[in-house]
């Protein structure tokens, strides 16, 4: 297949009175993991539903392997594995009945591949789905998407409900699949997850695509919050000259300072070594910090006491 796995051009999908997605344009290249990043309600699921042929675009076009997502969705689905964002299964089926049912629509399911997936994700097959935990239901949904070894995976928040170990295992598996030449379109609202696995990232906010960039570019642009607690008050101006460091808030007369750090850690650590630090929390990067880059004026969180200039 020579056409790109996903090509979206000026796609708009609106609901009666609500915003859906507006004027999206992006392309996903063969053999890449494309992270589709945005907060809840940003339009990720709407975009995915258009790609899967569940929703008709209001305007613009969405194509998968060169085929129109609305008029040719049956053909598209031969090559796509899909996991919905809100996994709800048939409660009275067992795991094996669920997988057998969905396998019956596909041709050429390799039994060895099926066995490998079931072993790797430790799927519970014999219990009725209504007796399975959320994580085990999610694993069933993941395995059904992978069973026919599709060229393209469209995954809507696929790790939700999985325990951290299984999340790690699944993200490792996605990288292996990418190395086998598969293309993966992965939506998430967790920046750290997308950073771990994606090659490129599309950022969506309030229905609009804010940016498409590589993970390296993303890491350069986002900030990580660092909360510092000092034994004595510290003047926030001590951080003013450090590159890539911003003071977000100051509390307790300078005993507690929150910084935004943009991957410029060495200079900051050297400075902290001279200060009476008694505690430090260096949180993982969050999505809001990325939006700060693009919408700084709108989205700076209100400071709890007073913001340093």
């Amino acid at each position: 297949m020579t056409a790109p796995p996903i090509a979206v051009e000026q796609l708009t999908r609106s609901y009666d009175s609500q915003r859906g997605v507006i004027d999206l344009t992006f392309t996903v290249q063969p053999g890449e993991i494309f992270g589709f990043l945005g907060p809840n309600g940003a339009g990720k699921t709407t975009t995915i539903r258009v790609l899967m042929g569940f929703l008709r675009p209001t305007s613009g076009r969405a194509r998968v392997f060169g085929l129109d997502c609305w008029t040719e969705s049956t053909e598209i689905k031969k090559h796509v594995g899909y996991v919905p964002g809100d996994v709800r299964l048939w409660e009275n089926m067992t795991g094996v009945q669920f997988l057998d049912f969905l396998c019956a629509f596909r041709q050429h399911i390799d039994p060895a591949w099926r066995r490998k997936l079931l072993e790797r994700f430790q799927v519970e097959l014999d219990k009725r789905i209504k007796h399975l935990s959320r994580g085990n239901r999610q694993k069933l949904a993941l395995v059904q998407a992978l069973l026919h070894d599709p060229l393209l995976l469209i995954l809507d928040e696929p790790t939700s409900g999985l325990d951290p170990l299984m999340q790690h295992e699944f993200l490792t598996f996605l990288r292996e699949e990418r190395d086998r030449g598969k293309t993966i379109f992965l939506s998430s609202h967790q920046l750290s997850e997308v950073e771990r696995v994606a090659d490129r990232v599309g950022i969506i906010r309030e229905g609009r695509l804010v940016a498409v960039l590589t993970v390296e570019e993303l890491k350069r642009r986002r900030t990580r919050p660092m909360e510092l607690v000092f034994a004595q008050p510290v003047d926030p101006q001590r951080f003013a000259d450090l590159p890539g460091v911003r003071v977000l808030s100051v509390q307790d007369d300078g005993r507690r300072i929150e910084l935004g750090v943009q991957d410029e850690l060495p200079a900051l650590l050297r400075r902290l070594a001279d200060l009476p630090v008694i505690d430090m929390i260096y949180a993982p990067p969050d999505l809001e910090s990325v939006f700060l880059t693009y919408y700084q004026a709108e989205t700076i969180p209100p400071t709890r006491e007073e913001a340093a200039s």
Partner: peptide, 9 residues
Amino acid sequence: TAEFWLSVP
């Protein structure tokens, strides 16, 4: 549950 059977070819 429709999203599962609507994702088949």
